[in-house]
């Protein structure tokens, strides 16, 4: 029994060595320690979103950030801000950061799909969106990171008005706001 356990330990050590080496040789090495994507809300506390009833109460927009900037480079919007201030007023573009199959099953009406891990494959869609366009990105809900990852990516690409709709698809769906799916289009 001792020998198989030693073999197992050997395999694990080998895996650790290969894992570390391959990561170090990656073009963009993955951080050894995962960092949470911190977001702050757009000028309002998370607990009590105020009722904002028109465009005359503009959202606090983040300044244009430099390349490589990560935290605080984008801000979050609540369901009401996303719907009343941006969606209804046609103030911005909605981008669904989830995988294509989830987008196809259902998404915010009018939203385009750019899966967070495949931005480079969707450059055609991005080409239609000017860098100063207000963009709202979302994924499933508060627990997903896809929207934040995509937001970072878009900021790196030069977009200056990126908002993350934290409540995402789940909140939008629960609120009964306009949705569409590939099956119905």
């Amino acid at each position: 029994m001792v020998k198989p356990i030693l073999q197992a330990i050997l395999i694990v050590l080998l895996a650790i060595a290969i894992g570390i080496t391959t990561n170090m040789t990656r073009k963009h090495p993955v951080g050894w320690i995962a960092q949470k994507k911190a977001v702050e809300f757009a000028g309002i506390p998370e607990e009590s979103p105020p009722v904002v009833d028109s465009v005359s109460t503009p959202l606090e927009l983040p300044p244009r950030y430099q390349h490589g900037s990560t935290l605080e480079a984008f801000k979050a919007v609540t369901l009401e801000q996303a719907y009343h201030d941006i969606y209804q007023q046609k103030m911005g573009v909605f981008i669904d950061a989830r995988y294509a199959d989830l987008y196809a099953e259902g998404h915010i009406e009018g939203a385009i799909n750019i899966p967070y891990d495949a931005v480079m494959d969707y450059m055609d869609q991005l080409a239609d969106i000017p860098p100063d366009q207000l963009v709202v990105v979302y994924c499933d809900g508060a627990d997903c990171d896809a929207s934040k990852l995509l937001a970072e990516e878009l900021i790196t690409l030069g977009y200056s008005r990126i908002f993350v709709f934290i409540g995402g698809w789940n909140e939008w769906l629960a609120a009964g706001y306009p949705i569409s799916s590939e099956e119905h289009e």
């Binding site: 080998l14 895996a15 650790i16 290969i18 894992g19 570390i20 391959t22 990561n23 993955v30 951080g31 050894w32 320690i33 995962a34 960092q35």
Partner: peptide
């Protein structure tokens, strides 16, 4: 914090 490390080694 540890999830990246696991994701880098476990598949190997």
């Amino acid at each position: 914090a540890y999830t990246n490390l696991i994701a880098l080694v476990l598949p190997w």
